[in-house]
Structure formats: C-alpha cells, structure tokens
Design a protein around this nucleic acid. Sequence first.
RNA 1: GUCCCUAUCGUCUAGAGGCCUAGGACACUGCCUUUUCACGGCGGCGACCGGGGUUCGACUCCCCGUGGGGACGCCA
Length: 487
Amino acid sequence: MTSSSVRVRFAPSPTGFLHIGGVRTALFNYLYAKQQGGKFLLRIEDTDLDRSEQRFTDDILTSLKWLGMEAEEPILYQSQRLDHYKKIADRMVDQGLAYRCYCTEAEVEATREQLMKEGKKAMYGRTCRERKEPLEGRTSYAIRAKFPLTGTTSFTDMVRGEIHFPSEDIDDFVMIRTNGVPTYNFVVVIDDVEMNISHVIRGDDHINNTPKQIYLYDALQAKKPVFAHLPMILGQDKKKLSKRNGETSTNAYRVEGYLPEALLNFLVRLGWSHGDQELFTMEEMIALFKLENVQVSGAVFNSEKLLWIQGEHMKRANPERLGKIVKEDFKSKFSDASFKELDSAFAAKLIPFLAPKVKLVKELAEQLHPLLEPGVMPVDASILKWNKDESVKVKIKAAIDVLRNEWRALIESNQKNTLGECGLDHAGVDLKLRSVCEANGLKLGDLTQPMRHFVTGHASSAIGLFDLFPMMNWKIINLRLEACLKS
RNA sequence: GUCCCUAUCGUCUAGAGGCCUAGGACACUGCCUUUUCACGGCGGCGACCGGGGUUCGACUCCCCGUGGGGACGCCA
C-alpha cells in the first residue's frame, strides 16, 4: 500500500496523436496524484476497433514519456478485456438492470430525429425496454442500460460543486454494440472500479456522461469516485481545441523545439493559477496544485504566451541537457562536420551564451551549426549596410584587415588555437574594436555588422562578437574574415 | 431544439462583501540601455455582459435575461 489511497488515471483513446488537451488532463491527474502521494495510471481506451491504431498508442506513450508522466502500474488495454465486459453486461441483463435492444440503427435514428422535431431531447425511443422475448426475425441485438425513468442523479464535482440531472433527460445508452464490443460509457466504469480509481479528473465534455456512469456504479454496487471536470481548452475561435483551430499534436511541439517543462508550465496555467505566479518548475506545480483552484470556464490556447514561457525555461535549462536534446532531436540542422563538433568543449562553452537568447531548442541548433562548421558559411552580402556607401566599405575592410593581421600575429607568436588562450578576453576585444573604429573614423556598428555576418553565419547572432572571438578557433575566424574581405 | 456548464483587459488570470481609483502575465506600444537580433529597466493602452434584488456597502451573494461553450453516437 502507498501512503495514500489516491489513484488517478489518464485514459486516452488511440484514435489520433496525443492531443494537447489530453496532455493538460494527464497533467492535472499527475499533479494531483503526486501531491497526494497517490498513483498515476494509464489506460488505453481502444474499444473503437475501427479507428484505434497502434501507431497512435505508440505516439501517446512516447509523448507521455517525453513529458515525464509515466504510468506507475502496467497499462490496461481495454481491447484485451472484451469478454470480461460482455459477461458483466449479460449479468446486468439477468438482473434487470439492462436489456437487449433489437432495433436497427436506422430505426433508432428515425425516433431520434422525430423527438428533435418535437422539441425534445434527441434520444432512443426505449422500444425494447420492456421486451421479454427476442424480436421476431432478428438475431443481433445491442445491450442498453435500463436507466430509471424518474428521479434525479446528482453528484458533487470537485471543481464545480453540485450538479443535478433529471432522469427523463438521460438516455438508455448502449453498453454493448450489436457486434459485441462494449462502449465507452460502460467500460470506463468497470475499469475505474477494477483499477480502484479514487478520483476521475477529466474534461468537462464528460459532465453529461457522468449520470450514466453513476447509474453503472450503482448497478455494480461499487463505490463512486470523486469527479472533477476540467474546463475545455479552446482554439482562437473559442471553440474546443481541435486540429482545425490550432496545433494539437504534442509531438509537433517537440519538433518545434519546445521543452517539455515549458509546455507543461503553459498548460497548467490554462485553468489553474497560484496568485500571480507564471513560471513553475514541476516540483512547484506538484506542491502548489489544488483542484479547488481550477477555473470553471474554458481557456483559449495562446501560443504567444507559450513561446514566452518556453523562452523563460530556456534560460533556466541546464546547458548540458540542452546539448543532448539538440543532438537527439535536431540532428537535421547540422552537417556531418558540425554535428561532430557538438561534442567539443567549444560547443559546451557556446550553449550557455546562446540558450538564454533564443526561445526554441530548434533555434539553438540553428545558431550552433554555423559556429561549429569548420569552413566558411555562405553569406548574402547584399543586405550589408556597407553597400550604401563605397567609401565606408573601404574603411571597414581596412579596419578588418588591421585586426586580422594583428590577431594572426598574436596567435602565431603564442602558438595557440584561440585568441582567448593568447590572453584576449571580452573586454580586450571590445577595446580593440573600438580603437580600430576610432582610428578609421567608423562607428562600432559599421564594423561589427559585416564581421558578425561572416563569422557567425547569421545576420543576427545569439552570441556577441566580444564573447565569440576569444573562444572560437582562430583558423575558422581567419578564414571567414578573409571571405569577408573578398566580398 | 433539449439538457448541462459558464461569464473580470484582445488572451491567460488575481479577486472568496468594504483592502479595487480592479492587481499580475502574454501581446501591443513609448522611452532608456545597447556591437545586430534579443534581453533588461521604467512607463502607456486596456476589463468587472445587462437588468433586477440582498446589504450600510457589491467585481464578489441570489434571480432573470443575454452572450459563450459542451453534450445530445451501436465515438471516446
């Protein structure tokens, strides 16, 4: 036994890639479990045999692992328990708690439309509810719940309080389909009971399912869990977030270069808050999370704020870890040569400078590549400011030539690889560049723009020249300055 | 249409009857700083859906409207 009886689960269906809304649900479950000293479990709801696919299950598992939220007990797959569910349904039929329905889908659909037309709630007409014998000429049947006709089903939601449903609004929902496969509303209860789930934390699109499920808990004579319904995550159009109105695949955020803790931090603030605090570590989220503080209305997914949070986590991330992520997830941003240099001491020194200035890990990779590439980087010299004034261009080149000759001499006399090893530091480069500018009648910006462009391979680099020159291999700097002078 | 949920800046939110001339964050924007971009610092713009109650006093409590969302599947 754990110190707590709290057991929660995340129960996605593998009919699509792990959805960002699903991640938020998983997160709230996970946070609650961890904080209460309970367990976080996983169940794959694959009873829709046609739409469930292995690749989606794989994606869900990979993504959850990436996010650091893994199941603490073996994963339950509903498709492996079909017979078990069927037996329970049959037993309920014997007990008079459910019944066989011989209606065809077309017949059901017809009464549903008729009721809608009459201004009533669209539901099953209950044709077979009191039927004792199979319908003449029909062999296949579904099993429906014999939901009470009168009374009220009530429950206390941990985020919304009391919710009541009059029985006449609840349908005799299907538990077992004609093909023998059980439905969601049925199996979710059996599994939650058998997995000993104490708290059902899920999206509020399930509020309407709750009375049906409560009927099942009672029918099974099982203890009901505590329910907590989370507000929906909305797209920019304020509708439930879907592929149409936003990027919903979790893996897409990984590919973009988001850190898992940043995504989680952003998601936890969608529907939950702790005063004015915006940034949270996983430990803080676990310590501070309270279901009582969960918001009740939907929250629009704001990708700009996500980017900002990502940038903040980038500043706080361990540089070594960032290096690993770059190697694992962003190999495509490198050449063979620059990828190899990722293991160098130079790369390790670069990351702490680069990471706080970029937002995405992908951008970190894009900044690293040209700095690690041994050769010259292609430069579009047409955007350089010196094109505006030929006389300035001449002066700049003269200044660069002076610098290059001085530094080459320095390297040669010291027999070293970098200017830093020859004693030149940030302040030294600063001083040198400024004095050369003064001597040639140039502004600092005039000189640095072309140098930066050619040396870093970027029009704007996340690392300043003063920091870069001392640590970068002189041979490469020299090569690139040479290219600059020739342009 | 029916049922359920919901309503503070454009967005995420603070606010548990007087602390509110409503706070923070993102975005936008002005200035400063600056070797580009960015970061940072100091400002600005910007909201309690409407109407009734309850109360000495409502952003906060109640009711009604209205708006928004969700559900109404032999999907989950």
